Computed example of a mutant assay.
Amino acid sequence: MRSIKKIHKAVSAPIGNLVTYRALPTPALEIGELDPFLFLNHHGPQQYPARNSGLPFGPHPHRGFETVTFILAGDIMHKDTGGYESTIKAGGIQWMTAGRGLIHAEVSSDEFMANGGDLEILQLWVNLPARYKMTEPNYIGLQKEDIPKITLDEGKVILDVVSGRWEDVPASIQSLTDIQLYTVYFKVGGKLTTQIPATHTIFLYVVRGELNINGQTVTKLNLVEFNQDAEDLIIEATTDSIILFGHAQPFNEPVVAYGPFVMNSEKEIQEAYQDYQEGKFGIWQD
């Protein structure tokens, strides 16, 4: 089995009244160490009252990477300067390729702000290699019913195929860099056994519950860092659980991150800020 290098506890990082845990980066795991996975914020779970102000992510720029947003509860209304706009509800995902740069906003729908309700959202940043840093921006929003699901272990494991494929089942999203991503839901006792190429970086974050992962107990709000020494992965749930799980071939390129931009050099970061200030990411219109 692939050995576990370290288990990293997500750190509390609230944003105003939004409960937030940052699983990556943390003081013990720097950005770039789980190449090509860069960043993960876990918002919630929490309950919003009626007549709330919703999510606080108004218009802001990005360049050089992709954002993948998993809506477990609540909703997100997305809008960007590429002309994309959608409202994705619980169980859906948003995949945005920032590429050469755009401005976007991620806020709650009018319905959610009026009525309130449960909210839990994960946002993962996935790097782009140098050859795709300046690719054309793109956005895909998928509702729950648009995502292929696989039932395993006599119904005790349900796997959402978010990107790439699972065995012979393709996802609705095929990434530029063959990123494989899944959301996996376990009933107590559910078991998932798979093989991941030893050269690949594994991304595994426990959203809820408690599981035995390759012989070690891992509880909610923990990110598992693996060594690249074997292929076998065995995950068994000791309670009802949810994990965010994926893997990819590392890019092995320099990672320079500053604010909303992730590039390969300081010079490229400076260029990103200049291009943004000159309106090259588009002009935001309410």
Rank of each mutant, 00 (worst) to 15 (best):
Q195W: 07
Y205M: 10
H200S: 13
G259T: 03
L244S: 09
L221G: 07
I234Y: 06
Q143T: 04
L152C: 00
V218G: 05
V126K: 00
N227I: 06
G164P: 05
P197H: 04
K187D: 14
I202P: 12
V255H: 00
I243A: 09
Q249E: 14
T217K: 15
V206M: 07
F251W: 11
V256W: 04
V224R: 06
A248K: 03
N252R: 13
D160G: 09
N227D: 13
A230N: 15
P250V: 11
Q180D: 01
G190Q: 09
A248L: 10
L244H: 06
T217P: 04
L176S: 09
L142N: 00
L159I: 14
G215I: 15
L192V: 07
V157K: 00
S172F: 02
D146I: 06
A237T: 08
L128C: 00
D229K: 07
I235K: 01
D240C: 13
L152I: 13
L176V: 14
W166G: 03
A257Y: 06
A130N: 04
Y182M: 13
D240K: 14
I173H: 01
R208H: 12
P260L: 09
K144A: 14
I140V: 11
S175W: 05
K133F: 01
Y182E: 09
I234L: 14
W125N: 02
F186Q: 03
D160N: 13
P148R: 02
A248R: 08
F203W: 13
P254S: 11
D146R: 02
T217I: 15
G189D: 09
Y205I: 14
P260K: 07
K187M: 10
F186M: 03
S163C: 12
Q249Y: 11
E253T: 12
N214Q: 12
K149F: 10
G189I: 09
I179V: 12
L128T: 01
I213R: 02
K156P: 11
P170D: 12
N127F: 03
Y182S: 12
Y139W: 00
V162C: 04
G189S: 04
Q180K: 09
G209P: 13
G209L: 12
P254W: 10
Q143I: 04
A198I: 13
V255A: 04
V218L: 08
G259Y: 05
I158K: 06
G164T: 01
I202R: 08
A198N: 05
W166Y: 15
L233W: 09
I235M: 07
Y258M: 10
R165C: 08
D160A: 08
Y205C: 11
G164K: 00
V206G: 05
G141M: 00
Y139K: 00
P129D: 03
N127C: 06
V218M: 07
L211A: 06
T219G: 11
T177H: 01
Q216E: 15
T201E: 13
T194D: 07
G259E: 08
L128F: 00
T217L: 15
S163H: 01
V218Q: 03
K191D: 07
L221T: 15
E210K: 15
K133A: 01
V224D: 05
W166C: 05
G190S: 10
L142H: 01
D153F: 03
Q180N: 12
Y139M: 00
G209V: 10
T219W: 02
K133H: 00
N227G: 07
K144F: 06
T199D: 15
G215P: 13
D160K: 15
I213L: 05
Q249M: 10
